[in-house]
Nucleic acid binder design. Structure first.
Lengths: 155, 155
DNA sequence: ACTATTTCTTAATCTAGGTTAATGCATAGG
DNA sequence: CCTATGCATTAACCTAGATTAAGAAATAGT
């Protein structure tokens, strides 16, 4: 386990890399994302201060997520065997987040997912470009623009 | 931790219940699902032999999933504190499944999700009604019918 | 400060999948 | 055995969001 400083734009993990590390974020902002066969990015999660990112595939398999730096960050880099999994309560919280995300993707419209997102992560909205929020929500930037316009006209 | 036998149709957990238990499936088939504000069910996961189901929200919060029995089953009922979380490698595997599911929901079409489903869970397809597979895939039974028809005409 | 590049928004069109409704099949219960 | 309820499929239509394209606004690089 060691503390590292990383710069905006830096890529910590490429898709296909052996996936032995996780990152605990002390300051800054990371994201993890997948890339589909058409080359389109889909943001899996944002990780601001206090969060932890890692690919959740087994340690022995190639990663299916790319991890990069959105804001200069200080990280604790942890080897997956030991350090991470010791903190079970954090693991369990991450599961809860994933569960919520699946439920939202299956049952909520783009508008509802956006509402939920800004309630749950009000600060992130300020810190990342719109197109990344769209990517996280599973819609296009154009559709997000429309969603925001509709929200304004209603409230 | 105790072993229990349950009958098809039995409900093990209601949405809103305090969520202190998990179930390890020795034989039979369970499912967990959410219900949206329109009353529509969305299957979160199937749990055949060897799998484990539980709601992933923290133990102290009301559950957001309902768990019921699709085929008569023998279960190990575990209290969430102790027993479950001891088996970390199983926890980690569940995370990998959730991750894959999110990526599929964001980046794959209904046809692709269906293909992936029958590859990953070939036996489940035989064991549950079509409408439940549709629900798991996040589409309507009508759309699943169309998907299957298109597959047949192509191959 | 000026240009180049990326980002955001709008509008027009297209499409995957939803909705509704009708029909044929099972399965369950009397 | 007959009816009732639920399941799967088909077809006609509808809608949320994708795609394409173009312009405006913001950012970054020199």
């Amino acid at each position: 386990m060691k503390r590292i400083k990383v710069k905006k734009g830096q890529i910590l993990q490429q898709i296909g890399d052996l996936n032995t590390k996780g990152y605990q974020v002390e300051s800054g902002l990371l994201r993890s994302y997948s890339i589909d066969e058409k080359g389109k990015e889909h943001i899996f999660m944002f990780a601001p201060e206090g969060w932890m990112v890692s690919d959740n595939v087994p340690r022995t398999e190639p990663s299916e997520l790319c991890i990069d730096v959105l804001e200069d960050a200080v990280l604790l880099q942890v080897e997956k065997n030991f350090d991470i999994e010791i903190n079970i309560s954090k693991l369990v919280k991450r599961m809860a987040v994933l569960q919520k995300r699946i439920i939202m993707l299956m049952s909520a419209s783009a508008i509802e997912r956006y509402e939920h997102f800004i309630e749950t992560y009000p600060d992130i909205v300020q810190r990342v470009p719109q197109r990344m929020i769209a990517s996280y929500l599973g819609i296009t930037p154009e559709a997000l623009s429309k969603v925001k316009r509709e929200r304004l006209s209603k409230k």
